[in-house]
Design a binder for these strands. Structure first.
Lengths: 234, 234
DNA sequence: CGTACCGTTGAGCAGGCTCAACCGCTGTGG
DNA sequence: CCACAGCGGTTGAGCCTGCTCAACGGTACG
């Protein structure tokens, strides 16, 4: 671990203002402990549901460690992964008092569980904190827009490349390796590809010496220039 | 116009809570006038830039009437429409003090221009209002997720159908006709299709007697059952 | 040690993209 | 008033890429 983490829940996002030009952890130590005191810290094993689409939304969650996936079931019975969640991500924001997506852990996850009523209180007491949440959701919105641009591409290799770049930018840790805890099938569902196409794309990038596969859940970018060219081109 | 509109800027979104089960205008008359007093109302002709990607973000905007498109330019030079904006939509939320998307009007538009400093003041004074903005951005996030699911579909007809349904749900007015002020080319860019594919898809839906084309910028759903089946199937 | 799931690789098909021509409306200038 | 240019939209022909189906290999977990 390159960066030391203060205790308590945090929110990772790019700020609105002109200050820092990167993705940072938003909350002050005081705000973290303030939320931390109102929240319950939960430890969830791998492959476990955190919340279910359509269920009554009594709480929102902030991921502290581990990785999870967010998905929704389509009327056809198919399943689409809408996002991957990493430390300092939020999930469980509701619509009409119901969760809109199901969240399932990939690795073991620790997360903070905050009742919505409590969160409303916190916002009333500390408007600054509400703005931080606004910033975080706006950040998620930008991520989703980027996701859409990615999925709109025709070529599988390009989509996978942009996906890897997204994972890399998302990770605050300075490591040169990209952590990919999710399965190929999850990636495929996220990118709107068949899992075979994902496999072929990764194989292609590997054969071209653009990436190196360090086991199944870590990827190293070998040729940064061609990697960026790949991600940029459409 | 079926519904009477109170004066002042508003925000259209689905609330967090379990109350109303639909998309509504969020702000109270007091809050509307409160923002309205701090904002300048601007009238913009059709095909005009509201804000430009990368420019310094000094203000956010709330659309009052008309329609606009939001897009970003890709490194390749291509352009992707990321969203269409209608009355009570927000745009201009920044990242690192810069706009991330360009916004251009489609029809003549009236909008409220709110300096970011002013908005921050308003949030500090009225936390409830900050929560409403949070609700709106969350609503946008949901819309973007839905957009991604739409774009991830393989078939052009399905994508266009889901697009029309999105437009219909987006419109608060009770009218049975869907207003489509944007060009086929804009739709194509939004859906990640070629404009020919959009044209063919609409033609196909028309020949199947599922929709009726009332001029170029209005569409009527004729066969609701098959329309929903089309949108649901994947 | 066995089994089931994840991942890879191959062959054939379908749907959407590209290129290209054509149509209709609009606005403009002679 | 009409001719023409320009743009947005529709339609057609051929190609290309990713999907589907299928078989095989490897790894993690019981």
């Amino acid at each position: 671990m390159v960066e030391s983490r203060d205790p308590g829940p945090s929110l990772r996002a790019a700020p609105f203002g002109t200050g820092v030009q990167k993705v940072v952890r938003l909350l002050s130590a005081r705000q973290r402990s303030q939320i931390g005191n109102m929240a319950t810290c939960v430890r969830v094993p791998a492959r476990t549901l955190v919340c279910r689409e359509g269920a009554s939304a009594h709480a929102v969650f902030i991921v502290e460690t581990g990785a999870a996936k967010m998905f929704r079931d389509l009327p056809s019975g198919k399943r689409r992964v809408t996002a991957f969640l990493f430390p300092d991500d939020v999930c469980g924001l509701a619509q009409h008092g119901q969760y809109v997506d199901t969240v399932q852990t990939i690795t073991p996850v620790t997360l903070y569980r905050i009742p919505v009523a409590t969160l409303a209180d916190i916002f009333r007491r500390d408007p600054e904190l509400a703005v931080h949440f606004l910033c975080k959701v706006t950040h998620e919105l930008r991520g989703s827009l980027q996701h859409t641009v990615t999925v709109a591409r025709r070529d599988a290799v390009g989509r996978v490349t942009m996906f890897l770049r997204m994972l890399e930018q998302n990770d605050i840790r300075a490591g040169s390796r990209i952590w990919t805890p999710m399965s190929r099938s999850d990636v495929a569902s996220y990118l709107g590809l068949s899992l075979e196409a994902v496999s072929r794309a990764l194989g292609s990038l590997h054969r071209s010496r653009i990436i190196a596969l360090e086991g199944r859940h870590e990827i190293q970018i070998v040729d940064r220039l061609r990697f960026e060219r790949m991600a940029a081109a459409l």
